[in-house]
Write a protein that binds this DNA or RNA. Structure first.
Lengths: 204, 204
DNA sequence: CTAGGTTTCCTACAACCGTTAGGCAATTCG
DNA sequence: CGAATTGCCTAACGGTTGTAGGAAACCTAG
């Protein structure tokens, strides 16, 4: 039925590649259409607009990231697990910075109109986001952190990893010694120490 | 000489306010012109284009942020200084999220063409960025951290603070207990502990 | 008070992007 | 082979960036 050609998945995957090539800001209908060798209106058969496209890319990339970290933390626990997890995220961000940008640059819609339909891409992004949150929880739990402090530990770990990667990618660390490559393991050392402390010591 | 009216500073200040009102993405020639009650081409007398405008806003806001943290850390040392510093940044980000976005969303130009002129707004942003970096260094130094580890400590502290604020602003912490307000002081506690450790313990 | 110069702002225009509407052609199924 | 389905197209509209050139307002000098 009908003739074969592009489909939604192919369009979104191409958009993710485009983000890596030219930056997430270049993920736009016209640029993407040019890259795919079609005219702009063609894409509206597969996506419902520019925001839908970008949100769909975010969801797609969040799933890729969850896949990457998921396989990285397949084995090990405690410090090894933390390093594997953090390295997986950082490697992902360095290998494809446009994709990583997509995971952070997408604002959650203000949920303004309760009558408004929630697009598929939004729920997909939320689901994929939760998947990543669950993986972070797995890492924290391997430290034996009591349930009361799980959320706190996830926030601490995520903030530090995300913050370091963001600043590194923005070039903030590029103009001072030592190289960012050197300080990264030290950051993980200190994070490991703190997570261990949270697991063992009683907190007020 | 000439008639009075807008000038570059007024335009950029208005753009910063616009970022807080409608988000940094809304900082665009046409929207800004509408807000100022003039036509779009008018703004080209004061700025050289959309990118120049956004970069100038970044520089302007980075200076505001440096002002805020600078007065916050006027007194105190160690833990008190850290809390004052971090709270100043977080308060700034929460009070004006569009402005804070401007500090992070601006990519450094790839410095592609060595023959290309570097616009004033870019050098201003770099200078303002360095001002903020120096303030971070002041906080770290008050812990008595040896010079060898200063850069590392700045990176650790900046990553954690920036990461937490970014995720908090993105709403990542909004759907889990305890509230973000509660975990923030704990983050600073752990950061204080780690900075103290870096200052006293010998590091490999 | 008038003339010049300077600066601000405007209209007009070209190019590009997002988006909608409607039509042609290719493919697949009965 | 015919028909439904689907993919892509052209045409067109509104909005945005950016350029060119002109008109009005203001300050200063004579």
């Amino acid at each position: 039925m009908g003739r074969p050609g592009l489909n939604r998945s192919a369009v979104i995957a191409a958009a993710a590649d485009l983000a890596d090539e030219l930056g997430f800001d270049a993920v736009t209908i016209s640029v993407l259409a040019r890259h795919l060798g079609v005219r702009s209106p063609t894409l509206y058969s597969h996506i419902s607009g520019a925001t839908d496209l970008r949100t769909a890319v975010t969801a797609y990339v969040l799933d890729e990231l969850a896949d990457a970290t998921s396989t990285a933390i397949a084995a090990g626990e405690g410090r090894d697990l933390l390093v594997a997890y953090a390295d997986a995220i950082r490697d992902f961000a360095r290998r494809s910075s446009g994709r990583y940008d997509a995971t952070t640059r997408q604002r959650v819609p203000p949920a303004s109109d309760p009558a408004a339909e929630i697009p598929d891409s939004v729920t997909a992004a939320i689901t994929a986001g939760r998947r990543n949150a669950d993986l972070a929880l797995t890492v924290v739990r391997s430290y034996g952190i009591p349930e009361t402090n799980e959320t706190y530990a996830v926030r601490l770990m995520s903030s530090l990893i995300h913050g370091y990667i963001t600043l590194e990618l923005a070039g903030t660390f590029a103009h001072s010694d030592p190289p960012s490559e050197t300080t990264w393991p030290e950051v993980l050392d200190d994070l490991d120490r703190t997570l261990t402390l949270i697991a063992t010591a009683e907190r007020h």
